[in-house]
Design a protein around this nucleic acid. Structure first.
Lengths: 197, 197
DNA sequence: GAGCTATCTTAACATTGTCAAGTTATAATT
DNA sequence: AATTATAACTTGACAATGTTAAGATAGCTC
């Protein structure tokens, strides 16, 4: 390929290389200059497409959410009979497969205004839970607390596994996937009835 | 107070000021030079006490875990009859009261070798769950998955509330504390019996 | 007192995010 | 097709950061 003054697709190339760098060398290695260098443009070139470094990271996170949604859907489509459980497994597996990206997405430091792509991901999970109710107690005001519980379990499990706060081995499991499935089904498929307040 | 060449207690002062800065202006504002300046010493002074910036941050996180444990114990001691639930509430409330510190503690980027203080915090929660079993299904190998579930819910809830991924208002609650209590008790106090595998 | 050593300072280096000023290629207009 | 305009890039600079090397100072031991 030829070396052109105008790259032609720099914006996407920057995001792509940023993701590459992020997953290969981690967040600390992700400098704007480095991304630019790796993309073959000068240090200030990214500023034609992104206001900030944070804007680049936001774009990276946005792409992350796109893949996140896809990963969850893939898992859920494969097991429609366990829709909610599969969504959750997709959630956790994505985190384990893309640690740095997942971390960036949920870092909080950047996403002040909630991205569309992010919102869609959340909605996927929320809708899944709402449409496949779990038998969890309703809140006093009639909205299902189950969504909050499910989201919390899934997100917490993903985070704690990432940080190696515990491992499947700690619980006698040899395979990650089996462990995740058991943990999630423990909390996502509670018994039919509910105890008193 | 007098301006001495030898500070006398610089190591602790640095950690203290770092925490201050962290909570007041956030992680991005936390530079080694800034902490040194605020403490009244020169830019390279911290290197007499910390190998790295990461070492300083690790010390900050360690102090964070100390306060974290205290916060959980305080809550649990106040309601011994709801021991596990209270531990969980302490967990979440600490996160909400010390957002940046909590974030740093669980960032993962630093704590490769698990700190003692950190381990103690975790053990507090784990022991709490183990000693006050929740009736959650056991794993095939006999260890309680309940610990993983409980830890996940609590950590996920803390994280998602911090990131404002949802709010108590979304579920019709006006008070944070009440919301947290309901979510946690939904998942920490499941009904007595358990459904089939 | 003399000397040791931990503690702290000053000076410097490479790297980073960011901006201002210029350059070049593409698109728009004529 | 020539000119113009505009978007996409480059170079060069600035302040701030993490970190190291070399030196100064103070409190300790003998």
């Amino acid at each position: 390929m030829k070396k052109k003054y105008h790259h032609g697709d720099l914006k996407n190339a920057l995001v792509e290389n940023a993701i590459q760098l992020l997953e290969c060398e981690g967040l600390p290695a992700l400098s704007l200059r480095r991304v630019a260098r790796e993309t073959g443009v000068s240090q200030a070139a990214p500023y034609s497409h992104f206001k900030d470094k944070r804007a680049l990271l936001a774009a990276v996170a946005s792409e992350g959410y796109r893949r996140f949604s896809a990963r969850m859907r893939k898992e859920a489509d494969a097991r429609p009979d366990y829709y909610t459980l599969s969504l959750g497994m997709g959630y956790v597996l994505f985190a384990l497969e893309n640690p740095a990206l997942f971390h960036l997405m949920f870092d909080g430091q950047l996403s002040e205004p909630l991205d569309d792509e992010a919102f869609n991901s959340y909605q996927l999970l929320v809708d899944g839970v709402e449409q496949h109710p779990l038998g969890v107690r309703k809140s006093p005001h009639g909205k299902t607390l189950g969504t909050a519980v499910a989201w919390s379990v899934v997100h917490g499990l993903a985070t704690l596994l990432l940080n190696k706060n515990f491992t499947p081995q700690d619980y006698g499991f040899t395979e990650m996937e089996s462990f995740v499935e058991h943990v999630l089904s423990s909390s996502l498929h509670p018994p039919n009835e509910q105890a008193k307040p």
